[in-house]
Design a protein around this nucleic acid. Sequence first.
DNA 1: AAAACCATGTAATTGGTTACATGATTGG
DNA 2: CCAATCATGTAACCAATTACATGGTTTT
Lengths: 181, 181
Amino acid sequence: MSRTRYALLGILTYGPMTGYDMKQFIDGSIAHFWSESYGNLYPKLRELEADGLIAGRDESRQNAPVAVVYSLTEKGRSAFRDWLAQPSREARPRDELLLRTFFGHEVPPAHTAAQIERYRNQQHAALATFGGIRAELERSHAEHPHQPYWLMTLRRGELVAEARLRWAEECLALLRATTPA
Amino acid sequence: MSRTRYALLGILTYGPMTGYDMKQFIDGSIAHFWSESYGNLYPKLRELEADGLIAGRDESRQNAPVAVVYSLTEKGRSAFRDWLAQPSREARPRDELLLRTFFGHEVPPAHTAAQIERYRNQQHAALATFGGIRAELERSHAEHPHQPYWLMTLRRGELVAEARLRWAEECLALLRATTPA
DNA sequence: AAAACCATGTAATTGGTTACATGATTGG
DNA sequence: CCAATCATGTAACCAATTACATGGTTTT
């Protein structure tokens, strides 16, 4: 069963939601380690409902087309908990930037440096975003029972971004020291 | 054009090779940031040849079926260099372990800890592997002109694995301190 | 004699993304 | 009144993996 399906089940542990809401949740809270497209999300919701893991209820809104609010069934919650205990498969590695770095000998060092500079800026921006999220989490949600888990995922983002940033700085120093061919 | 195609062009900058050799190269040298399957590799070689970016020559071996040795054409090398200058697209994030961590509230802390422990061990093993590679690179290939680029990609592996390891340790400390529900 | 390695390939499937399409509501 | 947001969906496409299939060579 696709990871998307479990992601959606997990989101519904936070309460009943429309597909649109789930997408908002993803983009707003877990975007730095998870993403979904509508073109994948809506079909998966249908599947989950067909399998009895979630239940959709039409919610008629004033003069607007109905929205389908999904909620987790007992079966769905149980399936999600089972999945949580399964070992996590790590994605097969495919890092375009490192591929370009590895073959840097084919182009002038400045080309590789430009690649890594862009990367450094991305990591820098990511760290700024994480800082904002951390401040917000510690300010408004200090007592939320799920806060420790939010902070853990955030911390992973921070530590890895810092490592990547440091790597980029090291490489840039090396590349600048390279005698231009 | 698929990333696989460029990866194969890059590998051929190291000299003529069979598809099998390229797979060996990937598994032996860049596995920690790139991977390919035969089921993808061979069809891409056909495409690359049809497009004139590589040229295959049948090499008859003693009593064995022919092997196709591919080499980079001028057009191929030029296309590869163009690609090296393109900005690297970062993969859409999809990290199963962080997804499980984020929803840890649904299961006892020990479940999440088990997940992260497995992860910690993987990072630990990765660091050991990297250490071996570094020793080998500094021993036998100290003067190879490509060595700086090999060391850069290796360094990324090390720094990120260290960050992940540290993250895992931090989380495990937190989870052990959690009062069991 | 068996296991591991060399070498190539196809078919089916997976697991998504992107682009397109629609239409109402709300805020400026 | 225009833009942004809410809300849902389909069709075409993409890039790749997995499983299957074959058969010779070298090493143990």
